[in-house]
Amino acid sequence: MSELPFDAFSGTASYIANDSLTRDVNAAIALQRPLLVKGEPGTGKTLLARAIAEALGMPLLTWQVKSTTKAQDGLYHYDVVQRLNDSRFGGGDVGSIRHYIKMGVLGRAFRSEERVVLLIDEVDKADLEFPNDLLHELDAMSFHIPELDETVSAVHRPIVIISSNAEKELPDAFLRRCVFHYITFPERELMERIVRVHYPDVTEGLLEAAILRFYEVRRIAGLRKKPSTSELIDWLFVLVSGGVPAEKVAAAVPFLGTLLKQEKDLDTAKQRISWS
């Protein structure tokens, strides 16, 4: 396995990361520990993994965690039903269990011939014990398949990125093994750079007015869900494709529904925003 340089990752053309994020990404890679990324929804946690994969030229494997996800799902799945079916109705090589063992995302990441970036997305969605069940597999980068009496070990240690929306607390034992990064909400300057990447042609006036409005909306007290970067980008898309001039954004907030998705938030915002 070839060692990556310590400054392997520095963002990509379409993903702007601040220094502390790139540093933590590189530290996690160098220390061979999973990087746990937390932050408000819409601050680019999932995109980060994609950007790392792109920057390092590695394939990205994503394990989308759901409330019903079990640790076992990521390792492998023994399709007993298929085997039963084949044994009853013919077809397939029933004699060997091997044909009915299907690798999960983690299994595929371990087996992969080239080094991959593995994203375990929204780890907090699953049961509380889920992260603990993965401790050994992520530590040793291997797991055992009792059905075959075989151990799958990582050919190349994958770069593991884990994202969490902080819906549940994660167990300590799990946290101790991770490099942790909390994505703070971008400040204006960084936000302008991020938006520029997505809309290089947007006029200076519109961009400035929109960002000003955006931070104003975020400052409104009592919002249930503050708009985040992804909402701003959507909003700008609507503004640009709708041909809304900058003066209009400065005077009012058109398409407020793109920024705020909850009815109650919309009401709150309408009361607070200064309509001039």
């Binding site: 540093r23 530290a27 220390l31 520990r33 746990l36 937390k38 490099v179």
Partner: peptide
Amino acid sequence: ALHDALGKGLVDSTDSLYGLARAICVHTE
């Protein structure tokens, strides 16, 4: 882990010491 990181030469300034030690030692914002 922090010692490991220091040993790997990941710390080259007070800034990086601050950031790296935080990433390793702190698990919640």
